[in-house]
Design a protein around this nucleic acid. Sequence first.
DNA 1: CTGAAAGCGCTTACAG
DNA 2: CTGAAAGCGCTTACAG
Lengths: 339, 339
Amino acid sequence: MGDKGRPAPKGRVPATIYDIARITGVNPSTVSRALNQPGRVSASTEQRIREAAADLGYRTNPMARALPTGKTGTLGLLVSDLTNPVYFDLVRGAERVAREHDTMLVFADSQESAELERSTAERLQIAVDGLLLVASRLEDAQIQELAAAKPLVAVNRPVPGVPSVAPDVRPGMIEALDLLHGLGHRRIAYLAGPEASWMNGMRWVTAHDLAVDRGMSIAEIQSSAPTREGGTDAFAAVMAADVTAVLAYNDLVALGLLGACLEHGVAVPRDLSLIGFDDIFGADLSAPALSTVRCSWGDMGERAVAKLLGAIQDGDASGAELNLPTEFVSRASVAAPGR
Amino acid sequence: MGDKGRPAPKGRVPATIYDIARITGVNPSTVSRALNQPGRVSASTEQRIREAAADLGYRTNPMARALPTGKTGTLGLLVSDLTNPVYFDLVRGAERVAREHDTMLVFADSQESAELERSTAERLQIAVDGLLLVASRLEDAQIQELAAAKPLVAVNRPVPGVPSVAPDVRPGMIEALDLLHGLGHRRIAYLAGPEASWMNGMRWVTAHDLAVDRGMSIAEIQSSAPTREGGTDAFAAVMAADVTAVLAYNDLVALGLLGACLEHGVAVPRDLSLIGFDDIFGADLSAPALSTVRCSWGDMGERAVAKLLGAIQDGDASGAELNLPTEFVSRASVAAPGR
DNA sequence: CTGAAAGCGCTTACAG
DNA sequence: CTGAAAGCGCTTACAG
């Protein structure tokens, strides 16, 4: 690479199989075979073709290949917000498996908007072999429509008839509620996430049932957004609810609420115990460090890509997996109620 | 949407302009014109064509369009690590401008590997109209080669002959060093980032010169990675350096070092003052909160996309902008040296 | 083992 | 205003 002279002039036109064919004196179809179906061509021609390709810096044009084959060799991963730390491990897990299968992964971001999610999904879908839809805000029917067009795996949310991967929130939440109950908490609240989020509904229902089972009261408090700001904004509502502990939809919301508490002189955990969800980057940084229910996002990423790849190859779209384990991570933000 | 009957069967084949042409009784070329060059076709035909397109749920196939035109309508953004909070604002800024121009943005991640960066860039490049290369680990020559093939903008690093956008670190660092000096610090250290990072070199050189100007000594300490682990691992080396303040390559490293200090009973800021870079998500969460030099990543994202779009349209690849301002953000991790 | 041809879905001069 | 044709770069039956 360094110095084959200075960089080629701007308009450099990429080499095609026709260039290679001309140089080596064979038919373009032979070039295509030599490059893609090793063994289908005599060793010596293949050799010459490969050399010429290397000389010309040939790269096969994925667009052109996609037209006749319908395969692009890339997968799309669409999340509601790429800049949400929740997705870090998911991204890493997905990349790990994609890399192993020599598949390129491209990411896109629907910016928490269902409308944008839909249009982005459609646009992305046509340029990839399959789509991973993470924490979708779409309706089941819309997801089913997308899934009908091309292989798709829903992540962090089951959709009837569509392959999916999601965590089982119960184990982690049982740990959390047992701990709260054991410490003496009897009135708690769930600080909710987006209404359109399936996972929010799941967390609320599970928390509710587990709390009731244990003879605790539980209030649902709305938040304006699943972000730190959303948590901060909910401070007054939380105070008004008169509870001793809060389970937040996610760590971002919990951290936002934590910040507001500190600012208003509400001591955590003495006056209020706080539990988040996801164990994101930063959850252990706060003071007090945030207790949280962790799901294996890394595993979800791996499983989801593996499943999608399977669906693409064999058309095998085996159903839902709703069983990735969760666990409670105990940190300083939880204690016995102070009064 | 909802219920046009149940979702179409899996293999549903997308409608093409030929389908529309057949239904409306015109030539496919007319369909193409009606859809893309409003006005070039009689109002009534255009009308009929649009209706048929809507009926069939027609979406133009970007691959097929890209072949004759060479344009895909999408931009690629390649970063060294998508899960690094540093890039949050960059991503948002880039998306803002892309959306305004009805351009799709796809993201990819080189996982901190120069080799992977190169191959990903090449692969991505052929599927997009232009590439944003963020904090590249490649050599100038390699970047120049990529830039020769297709419009490219380097972000957070200038490259000779390649359009770029990068911050001017001096203003923020002057504030930081003036503060340290004023507080009485005389022996400080720079905890370095990746050697291959242009920005790391820039920060070191600037810190060095400014420190020397002020009669302070400054040591360079290596870190194993630009992550929290990298900062933690550097604890012993920092202690050995016998300094009263540390400037870290970035906030992640600073937060890692901070954690190690607390763990080993080194009080921050009394025993050691700490300053990071970038003001990432979480920098204000730690205890003590981290002082840091903030650059306008959001602006960089916006400018970079605007510049790339310009380069694609007019071939106008105006040069480097090395002037995005930085500022010091003062938080609790800095104080006068304690002994 | 390899060539010649047709086709993937679209765009765009070129005619009329 | 619209049709017919050629071409973008590749793949893949079909022959030989």
